[in-house]
Design a protein around this nucleic acid. Structure first.
Length: 112
DNA sequence: CCCTTGACTATCT
DNA sequence: GAGATAGCCAAGG
């Protein structure tokens, strides 16, 4: 086993496990927080290798959309788990709770 | 070695 | 804002 992967995985798992419910982090953000900037593409692999259940569904793309193919079972599962803990969506994008996003969008909902 | 693969990103049209 | 493009980097064939 590569020593790199062992360290990387451990760090990533630790960061992801610390994401509070109702909040999300981007792959790049997780990688950076784990001490491995530019390793966004490696994060997903580390999540899949976790021996313990992780809140993997709280990891999303930098543009706040889900990384799976829209409509796939994985996509639906992740979206459901997130909504289940209060995360709101504006179409395909996640509305951050701390975002200074317009109140209009939250009140009016998706689209205009 | 060389080439391909990703649950990715930033940048430019 | 949607596509295309070019970086990114460990892993596996």
């Amino acid at each position: 086993m590569s020593r790199f992967r062992e360290k990387f995985d451990h760090q990533v798992w630790q960061v992801v496990a610390a994401i509070p419910p109702g909040r999300v982090m981007g792959y790049g953000e997780v990688a950076r927080a784990a001490g491995f900037p530019r390793y966004s593409r490696m994060v997903s692999a580390a999540l899949g290798r976790s021996p313990e259940p992780l809140p993997w569904f709280r990891v999303v793309r930098s543009n706040r959309t889900l990384a799976f193919e829209v409509g796939s079972s994985s996509y639906r599962e992740q979206a459901q788990l997130l909504k289940q803990e209060g995360v709101c969506f504006d179409g395909l994008k996640i509305i951050e709770p701390d975002s200074d996003d317009s109140l209009d969008r939250i009140l009016w909902g998706p689209q205009e």
